[in-house]
Each structure stands twice: as structure tokens, then as C-alpha cells.
């Protein structure tokens, strides 16, 4: 069951990921990216990260991507015009990408030869309660710093996007 779920959602993630890169229209890319994030949320659940799976859907798919979609719709961004690419890229791009991925996979398999097998329910540490306990004890300072970061980001966004008052 674990294998089937992993393969199904990994396939969806990769197909959507390829789609993000290949689609010429930003809206199609955005929808594919939402697909990637949704399937990653399921994989997080398989890895026992319940809170992160929920946060992934709420924050990433539910808030950040809506913002992207909103801006694309607001600017009415059209299709990207195809530019002439060099022959070298057209012929060598794909084989080189596959080679790179092959090298990386080999490296990963070499570096973690006896890594554990992922079984659903084997790791119970990702519940909101345990997550919150560590977040508000060990990681309290980084947490507070990120809140300051968010505040700065809000201010920056408002300053950048406001109308010029003459």
C-alpha cells in the first residue's frame, strides 16, 4: 500500500512538475504547481508529518498560490512568446538533464545504502502537539525572528504596491 501510494503521488508530482516548466501560460504552470504541492502533502502524510502536510495545503497551496493566481489574473499575463533557442540547447538539454538526474540518483543511493524503509505510521513525532512543544521550547528564538521577518515583508509589500500619492 505504501509503495502504491508513493508511486502514484510521486508520478503526479513529477508530471505536474514537468508541466510547470513546459506550459507556456502562467496560469497552467500555477495549476500544475498546485498539483505538485498537493501530492507532496500526501507524501508528507506518508512520512508521518501530519502538521506539515496540513500547513503545506493551507499555507502553500491555499495562500501563496492563490496570491500567484490572483496576480496572474490581475495582470492578465498572456502566453510567453517563444524565442529562438540555440540548437545546442535543443539537442543537448534533455540528455544532459537525464544524465544529471542519473548521477544524483546514483549519489543518493551510494550515500544512503542502508537507509530505513518508510512505513506509514512508523514515525509518530509529527503530530501538532509534539511539533508545537519543540517549536515553542527549542526553536522559540527562530520562531520570533520569522514573525519579525513576516512583519517586514508586510510593510515592504504595502510600500511597494501602494498608489503614489501626489
Amino acid at each position: 500500500m505504501d509503495v502504491i501510494l508513493f508511486l502514484a503521488f510521486a508520478t503526479i508530482a513529477v508530471v505536474c512538475g514537468v508541466n510547470v516548466v513546459l506550459q507556456t501560460h502562467p496560469i497552467s504552470s500555477a495549476v500544475s504547481l498546485i498539483g505538485v504541492m498537493g501530492s507532496l502533502a500526501v507524501l508528507y502524510l506518508l512520512l508521518g508529518a501530519e502538521f506539515i502536510a496540513a500547513a503545506q495545503v493551507i499555507v502553500y497551496a491555499g495562500a501563496i498560490m492563490v496570491l500567484f493566481l490572483f496576480v496572474i489574473m490581475l495582470l492578465n499575463a498572456g502566453e510567453e512568446t517563444r524565442r529562438g533557442r540555440s540548437r545546442l540547447v535543443q539537442f543537448l538539454g534533455l540528455p544532459l538533464l537525464v544524465t544529471l538526474l542519473g548521477l544524483f540518483s546514483y549519489l543518493v543511493l551510494r550515500l544512503f545504502p542502508n537507509a530505513s524503509h518508510v512505513r506509514f505510521g512508523a514515525f509518530q513525532g509529527g503530530t501538532p502537539a509534539k511539533f508545537g512543544r519543540v517549536l515553542f521550547t527549542e526553536f522559540l528564538l527562530p520562531f520570533e525572528v520569522t514573525s519579525v521577518l513576516i512583519l517586514i515583508a508586510i510593510l515592504g509589500a504595502i510600500v511597494l504596491a501602494r498608489k503614489e500619492i501626489e
Binding site: F6, V14, L97, L109, V118, R119
Partner: peptide, 22 residues
């Protein structure tokens, strides 16, 4: 019921990262 090797997850992560770079 053996489950999925962890390296598969890492390889998926590599694939997605290189797609992002591309």
C-alpha cells in the same frame, strides 16, 4: 509490507529540484 526506501523520496526531491532549476 516492506515500505518505500527512503532514497526514493530523496530522488524525487532531486528530480523536482532540477525541474525547478530548469
Amino acid at each position: 509490507m516492506t515500505g518505500v526506501p527512503l532514497s526514493w523520496y530523496l530522488i524525487l526531491s532531486v528530480v523536482l529540484f532540477s525541474l525547478g532549476v530548469a
